[in-house]
């Protein structure tokens, strides 16, 4: 049987429209990339996606995304912790502004970060005397990707931390654990999957990011050129097959990450409820 019976109407209409719209807007156009790249021979495809300039762009894109996601995992956990556990003046506004990178268009973030981190910018001029260049180097790419990824980590950890039952911590304390031991051995294991999920979400977003990066990156081939920019460069040279090949390589990675994130989220949900339910189920 395809579906369980229900007295509610509209199933066929709603599902039919959903699948039609999904196919027209997303599935058919996405499959166009795979079909287009299939017109190339395997050797042509492989030499396109492993050309030295493309390999250098993978190193930058994946390396900078990894570093940015690690920074976000650490500071995102700290920000979530402070927002859930402590009270301070202006907390409501601080909390609302965490979503700024979601709301601020990437091009605006891009030109602003490039201006701040340029050698005469607000932050850049502090580092220029030390001989550290940020804008137009891979370091600038890391900065932009950190900006973009932060809310993913904070917003994934926050609800899990809010639901964490204080009884568990009290139990740990009454058994003689220090505060740090309680955090490391009791709290961290149950929010660990959420931290990992946030990390993966930030990483996945960073890999495809374009707008916030290109202004600060400087886009020097082999040095500070990200993979999405390379797709645009190929398109502007009317090298459709080349652009599509790189896009397919990126899509394969993105889909693998999407699967990983789904698995992580399922794990996160599995780790959490038993602990909460067992404790919360006990009458006080």
């Amino acid at each position: 049987m395809f579906r369980q019976s229900s007295v509610l109407p509209g199933f066929n209409l709603a599902l039919g429209f959903t699948v039609l719209y999904l196919s027209l807007i997303v599935l058919i156009p996405l499959s166009a990339t795979f079909l287009k790249s299939a017109t190339l021979s395997w050797d042509e495809f492989w030499s396109t996606v492993t050309a030295p300039r493309v390999l250098a762009s993978y190193r930058l894109t994946f390396g900078a995304s990894l570093v940015a996601a690690l920074i976000n995992a650490f500071f995102g956990l700290l920000v979530a912790w402070v927002l859930v556990r402590y009270d301070f003046v202006g907390k409501g506004i601080v909390d609302a502004l965490v979503d700024l990178p979601f709301a601020l268009p990437t091009a605006v973030a891009g030109i602003t970060l490039a201006t701040i981190y340029a050698k005469n910018g607000w932050v850049g001029h502090l580092f220029a005397p030390l001989g550290i260049k940020i804008a137009f180097t891979p370091l600038g790419v890391v900065i932009a990707l950190t900006f973009i990824g932060l809310p993913f980590v904070v917003r994934t950890i926050q609800p899990i931390l809010e639901d964490f039952p204080s009884e568990v911590e009290e139990a740990a304390v009454s058994l003689g654990a220090s505060r740090w031991q309680t955090f490391r051995m009791v709290i961290l294991p149950s929010i660990g999957p959420a931290v990992l999920t946030g990390f993966a979400l930030a990483f996945a977003r960073a890999i495809g990011e374009y707008g916030s990066v290109i202004f600060i990156a400087g886009n020097i081939p082999m040095v500070s050129e990200i993979t999405p920019l390379l797709i645009i460069t190929k398109l502007e040279q009317y090298d459709y097959a080349g652009a599509t090949s790189i896009a397919v390589a990126m899509l394969v990675v993105s889909f693998a990450l999407l699967l990983t994130i789904n698995v992580l989220q399922a794990w996160s949900a599995r780790v959490r409820p038993p602990a909460v339910q067992e404790i919360a189920g006990e009458p006080a």
Binding site: T18, V19, L22, V26, L27, I28, P29, L30, A32, T33, K36, T106, A204, I207, G208, E209, Y210, G211, P228, L229, I231, I232, L235, Y240, A243, T244, A247, M250, L251, S254, F255, L257, L258, N262
Partner: peptide
């Protein structure tokens, strides 16, 4: 179906533009 609905979020915006060039360019 739920996973497929999320696909546009996991695709680079550049690729989102590219797919329409490949269809209608």
């Amino acid at each position: 179906l739920i996973t497929l609905l999320d696909l546009p979020f996991s695709v680079s915006p550049v690729i989102a533009g590219l797919i329409y060039v490949l269809m209608f360019g």
